[in-house]
Each structure stands twice: as structure tokens, then as C-alpha cells.
Nucleic acid binder design. Structure first.
Lengths: 227, 227
DNA sequence: TTATTACTGTGTACCCTAGACGCAGTATCT
DNA sequence: AGATACTGCGTCTAGGGTACACAGTAATAA
């Protein structure tokens, strides 16, 4: 597996016909399909058809589907926009919100970024940005990397949750709570908690809640190390 | 999409030949394949062949591949084993470790549990267990649910990280740090942090680190609410 | 006992996917 | 011009999920 294409692009050859397509157009076509119908709908066939070409034409640009998806991710996730905050806590919060927004705009990036795969400059750009925000004193290098991992984990967890609750047809959530009611003796705490949650009017605060807990815990450690 | 099969099983009909196979055997065959070769290797063809049947025989037991995977997940994830700790913090930590272990035993469960899908009793059993541990005072219902989400997010984040670093062939990590070195001017904080992490000898502490931050933050909130 | 019914396992068929390969046409360099 | 090397396409293979019809079998109804 090579990851060169993500970093250095393709060297434009001098001879022969000029390419009609471009990596950008191909990636954008794939992104449009994935946004509208999910990652499974992204087939070489389909992407090519949307562009008005045959699928084999795409193989002149990308080595295979995995490479296409990697390009799509890289383009969809983009770069974090700079913040002017000096406070590390609010800056990290802003970063997490931006990352969440990116994942919510393209929920398929969750599936596309699972497991071992080529990672491009934009994705590392997000890490770079977060690390440039984190205070360097009070945390070891490993701890700083681990901090990014917790935060990104929270972002992904909430993005996934939103993906489920956003899903309208079939209404799986209803069916589950239906089974839950039918087996309420087996899940007393769960039933009670969901009943309580239904009336406490604090919905859609999951992201903020988790984020605040993580940042609180981080703050505790940093101030403790600082003294 | 129905989820009945996960909760109530199949009603055994009285007439006709007795089934030679069972949902358990089929799920186990699928799990064995996924453990050894990944979720992509789980094809109806392959599962049936491993059991000594034709693929169409499986459709007498499961409605389709999605249902097969749901059964595999439910069986692979199992139930959390009870803890005798009364301290909520250590009990939650134990719970998270158990969940992580389950995901590490079957890394494909990460892909298999993405997005809207039928959820079975075992999966809710993990939630139930965590909720039965959490102190009911000091947190609203929504907050208790959100707490599970953060913790599960951390578990998944680390499981995914382990999945990548476990992957031996190709050694993507090496290629990435190669590109990183080549573009070190663009990622100064990242390069510096990784260099620092390489010498601080705190590897593989990512799970504990994030978990401790989350629990610290939770502790802060709970004690604060308690007074 | 026999006829009916309902179930199991299988063979065949269809459609969709990723991708290998070779060919025709075209733009550049020698 | 001729050679070279590139683009886009048509064809082909291997494999995936699944619909459907058929033969065999076990339990029920007549």
C-alpha cells in the first residue's frame, strides 16, 4: 500500500492526450454520492457514470477503490480553520466542535476512517492543530498524543450517535425501546434512566457533557503538574 | 428492518425435517472467520462452506447478511461479568476494561457496530451494567447516558488505535512518519511531540490516560453536585 | 394407512461489484 | 514523419448477495 498519491499528487506526464478528468472532480463526485446515499453507494461504476465516463477511465486516475476513498476522506475532512484564542481549553473545545461538524457534514467519514489505511496531510493537519494548542508544559509527549485520542474518540462517538438518531426510516430506536419495554425486568437501570432522561429536557447535550468532563479532567492534571 | 430475531429467536416449527444447523453454529463460524481474516472475509459462501453446506442453506436460518453480522456481534460481545466493587469509579474502570477486552478479542466488532442497525440484548446489557454502577444522585438521566457514551467512545478509540498498531504487514505507520519527516516544516508540533513521545517511555498508556481524565472530570462534577 | 402440509437443503439464475487487459485514438518528442 | 506514451473505452473474469423453484422429509389430517 502506497500513500504517496495523498501527499505528492501525480506527476503530470508531458506526452499524450491531456486528461479530461482530475482527482478533484473524481473525489467530489464520490463525496456527493456518499453524502446523499452513503458510502456503499460509491461504486466505480456510479462515480464514473455521474461524471459521464466509463468506470475504467477512473483507473487512469486512481489505483483502486481504496485510493479513491482515501482521496474523498482527505478532501471532505479538509483543514481546521485557525482560532485566535490563547486559552488552551476554549481552543481545544473549538477544535473539537470543528471536527464534529466536519464528521456530521460527511457521516461516511466514520466508516471510511476505520482500521489501518493511508493517512493524508489534512488528517495530520488536524492533529497538528490540536497539538499546537495543547500546553507543552505539564504533559509528556505521549500524554499529549493520548489527549488527542480521547478528544477524537468523543467526537466520533457523538457523530455516530447523531448518525443513528438522524436515520428516519425504519425508526430502529423505536423498535429497540419497544423490546426494552417488553424485557424491562432485565434492564431496570436502563429503563429507569431513559424514563428520567425523557423528562429532564437535556437532550443533545451529549457532546458538550463529555467534552466538559474530559477537559475538566485534563485541567485537573495540568494544574496539578504545574505546581 | 426487524430486530426480533435478536431478542426472541426463531419459533421452532413442528413439521418438516429438523434443522441440521443452528443460529449459534452459524454465528460461531462467522466469528471464527472474522477473527482470523477480518469482516470482509465473511461471505455467505465462505461461512456455509466452513460448515459444510451451500450458501443458500444459510438463508433458511438468517434473513440476510446484515442479520448474520448482527448475530455475530451479539454473540461475540457477550455479557459483562459482574463486579463486586462498591466504588463506582473502580467499577466503571473495570467495566471499560472488560469492554475494551471484548473489542480487542474481536476487532471487527468496531466496523460491525457502526451506524444504524438492530441492537440486541447483550449490547444493551453492557449499558445496563454501566448504568447500574453509576451513582444515581448527582447526575440527571441524560447525563448518565452521556457518561456511557464518553466511556464507550474512549474504548472504541483505543480499540481502533490498537487495530492499527497491531497491523504488521505494509507497516503504514512507518510510511506515514516517513512522509511526516519529509514535510516536517508543515507539522512542527506533531514532529516535536512524536519525538518527545519516542523517549518518554509511556507507551500503551493511552487507554488509562484517557479513562482517568474522564473519570476525574466525572468525579469533579459528582462531588460538586453532591454538596 | 394414506394424503396433505410444511419444512429443509440445493441448484440455478440474476444483477452488481472490483479490477486485468488490450485496442484505438491522440498529443508530444526525436 | 516516426516513434513514443498517454487517455479513454470495450471486453472479460471472479466473486459477492439473494430470489426462486424443486426434491426430499417429517409431522399432521383424513
Amino acid at each position: 500500500m502506497t500513500i504517496d498519491f495523498l501527499w505528492n499528487g501525480r506527476a503530470r506526464p508531458t506526452r499524450g492526450p491531456k486528461p479530461t478528468l482530475s482527482l478533484e472532480r473524481i473525489a467530489d463526485a464520490g463525496i456527493a454520492i456518499a453524502d446523499a446515499e452513503g458510502l456503499d453507494a460509491v461504486a466505480m461504476q456510479r462515480v464514473a457514470a455521474d461524471l459521464g465516463f466509463t468506470k475504467m477511465a477512473l483507473y487512469r486516475y486512481v489505483a483502486g477503490k481504496a485510493e479513491l476513498v482515501a482521496l474523498m476522506v482527505e478532501r471532505a475532512i479538509g483543514e481546521p480553520s485557525a482560532t485566535d484564542t490563547t486559552d488552551w481549553r476554549t481552543a481545544l473545545k473549538e477544535w473539537a466542535h470543528q471536527l464534529l461538524a466536519a464528521h456530521l457534514r460527511h457521516t461516511w467519514t466514520l466508516e471510511a476512517t476505520l482500521g489501518p489505511r493511508p493517512i493524508g496531510p489534512n488528517e495530520l493537519g488536524w492533529m497538528e492543530h490540536a497539538l499546537s494548542i495543547l500546553p507543552t508544559t505539564g504533559l509528556t509527549g505521549s500524554e499529549r498524543l493520548d489527549t488527542i485520542a480521547v478528544l477524537a474518540g468523543q467526537v466520533r462517538a457523538i457523530a455516530q450517535q447523531a448518525m443513528v438518531s438522524r436515520h428516519p426510516e425504519g425508526d430502529i430506536t423505536a423498535k429497540i425501546s419497544d423490546q426494552l419495554r417488553r424485557h424491562s425486568d432485565r434492564f431496570p437501570a436502563l429503563v429507569a434512566t431513559m424514563a428520567a432522561a425523557a423528562t429532564d429536557g437535556e437532550h443533545d447535550q451529549a457532546f458538550e457533557f463529555g467534552l466538559d468532563r474530559i477537559l475538566d479532567g485534563l485541567d485537573t492534571l495540568i494544574t496539578q503538574r504545574g505546581s
